[in-house]
Design a protein around this nucleic acid. Structure first.
Lengths: 185, 185
DNA sequence: TCAGAAGTTCACAGATCAGTGTACCCGGGA
DNA sequence: TCCCGGGTACACTGATCTGTGAACTTCTGA
């Protein structure tokens, strides 16, 4: 991707996430990234393609944050809930909920690439939970992974409320992991 | 509200929920409800006000469904998780996630009435969980209510995924309620 | 009988939207 | 020297957006 292309995606990320996709016009993105609208269309072809690139880039950044949090854990039982620690970090600078859920809300057409990217992101996290739960020796890793995913998404969705939902979610996540893990690791 | 007003809100509900708020124009809503755009503006004054009415109406319908599910329960311990049964019913005809979360995604301005309505809806459910948990004699009803809220919102947010997240969420909800409730009710 | 509320008809304003066409500039590599 | 890719400048299209003005009809209740 060219330097101008990177600036466009960066501006699109900030604007799409904070103001909504439909509400942000390509003219504004071009202006914010110090680029002509012509350049934007030469690079991405359409607004839909730019939206897909924005989501893919965001997904990439978020996955690397989660992976780092998991790798920082020595104890395999603690590692299962490491994504919740990553979420705490992530939420400090991302206070408008989940970009993927938000994108699906605005783009009802299931054939839009945003749907595939969003689904892949959630399913990736679910399979990560399952892997980690299996590695920690948890019983019923499938159901556990789904429950951890729900807690994760719920904590993200309730972000705008004046409640510390992330703490209570993390507590519950740790509790169900410990309950499923072998007693004395 | 006049007959035309009711038809407008009904059309707005269907269109806003399924296609997104910004993506739906007032012309389309007027056409679908068999009404002139002039009438729409005479009744609601602005699109923002119509959006607020749509959300308020949806909230009203949803609360009455939840209340009915709770009142159907004889056992106070079962009653705590009755909103999850209501969600199962609700999800059969509402497959595009939470209308309130989706609205917040599109309307970033916190002074928009949609933000107040959405927050009130979530906090109402949380306080309902707390009331029910207290009535069932659960210990730590505050934290339990937040955890049940997170599970509820998480199940709703993961609706588009090819996973039965509602079942696993409901199972976990029942488990934590039973764990907190007095042993032999 | 008459007033007022609800609704229609239709043209219109002013802004914004995604996307295009064309001509041009500039730097680096063959 | 020349070419070409990345980028600029800028006008423009055609559609769509929210919202308004003004005159008209139709029904109902006092």
């Amino acid at each position: 991707m060219t330097p101008a292309g990177r600036r466009i995606v960066a501006a699109a990320e900030e604007l799409f996430y904070n103001r909504g996709i439909t509400a942000v016009g390509v003219d504004l993105i071009a202006e914010r990234s110090g680029v002509t609208k012509r350049t934007l269309y030469n690079q991405f072809g359409s607004k839909d393609h730019l939206v897909a690139t924005y989501l893919a880039e965001r997904d990439r950044r978020w996955r690397s944050l989660v992976r780092a949090a998991v790798e920082d854990c020595d104890d395999p039982v603690e590692a299962v809930t490491a994504p919740f620690d990553a979420l705490r970090t992530w939420s400090r600078t991302n206070t408008r909920g989940c970009a993927f859920i938000n994108a699906l809300a605005e783009l009802p057409d299931p054939s839009h690439p945003a749907h595939r990217i969003a689904a892949e992101q959630k399913l990736w996290l679910q399979s990560l939970f399952k892997e980690l739960a299996t590695a920690a020796g948890c019983s019923a890793p499938d159901a556990l992974a789904v429950q951890l995913l729900v807690l994760h998404e719920g904590a993200l969705a309730t972000q705008p409320l004046p409640l510390d939902t992330l703490s209570d979610s993390t507590d519950l996540a740790r509790a169900i992991v410990r309950a499923g893990a072998p007693p004395h690791w």
